[in-house]
Amino acid sequence: MKTRTFAAFVAPSLVMMLIFIAAPLLYVFGQSFYLTTPVTEQMTVETCTPGFLTQNCTQETKSLPKLDEAGRIVTQTQFVGFGSYRAIIEPAKAWAAISTFDYRALMAIDFWRALRFTLMFTFVTLPLVLLVGLGVALAVNNTARTLRGPVIFVSLLPFIITPVIGALAIRWLFVSDGLLNNGLEWMLGHPVSMFSQGWTIEILMMFYRVWHVAPFAFIILYAGLQTLNHDALEAAMIDGASRWQRLRYVIVPHLMPLIIFVTLIHLMDAYRVFDEVVGFRAEAHVISLQYLTYDFLIPDSTGNRSISRAAASSMLTMVGILILLIPLLRRTWAQHRGSR
């Protein structure tokens, strides 16, 4: 393709990415170093609110924001450097906990608690997604041609379901009087509460994520299997390679670029785990980094929110993803250069 034609095709999406991804990202990056607060003053105000029959009037000293002539709240913005980052990571406390090997003290800090779960979630689900995806792909590839269509359709169903809805469905199945929970109780003969402690919730979350994402791995790897060179497979069979050896030395190396692609996507997705925390109402026991950002961002009932900490938290999440992706990106880059 000519460079000009290439540029003409790519330009619209590049412009979109600059406007809708790069610019907000830079803005949030900048925001994470500044803190905007309303200017407040102390005032004593009498407030009267209803009882059932009478009125309760109280004198309260409140901090009220100052308003300018136009009736807007006066704010001041100051540069705080890494202040918001420090407020999230709490380096001094964390370091004290790490240097004394005090695991509980480290987990008492929300960020580290969230990081612990996020990393574990990412690295436990990754191999399971790949294994299940590859297994289903091989199985479908070996079923009779007439059955493949329906089997592929059924295998893809979990991937089609909206994540929050899927998480809610799993919660309703396993909550105290849920269908599957009652089944478990009947089988085990004693009460089971899947949502009353952290580790059972974590297992359910990982189970749900693998169930939900494995079809994605499956469909990519299944497509890869269609391009498999059958001469190479037959040659391996003539050489006496067992089923396992053919998988290990012919099929997997052929699928490797796709496996790396699935890994890349899954690492990015899993590190941003959020739907499960919301859907399972897990915030008492388990939180993730993305949930932490959300929690900072959502205003409380009197309208306060922590924009700066939310910005810093989302930057930290992005840095985490980049660190996870570096080895894979380097490998892809090396292959790309090698193939030129």
Binding site: T49, G51, N56, S63, S301, N304
Partner: peptide, 22 residues
């Protein structure tokens, strides 16, 4: 509850109470 003596307090309508609740 609303008419008891001593009566239950009204939930405070202040920014600081909202922050504390959060």
């Amino acid at each position: 509850t609303a008419t008891a003596t001593p009566s239950a307090p009204s939930y405070p309508s202040t920014t600081t109470q909202g922050l504390m609740h959060g």
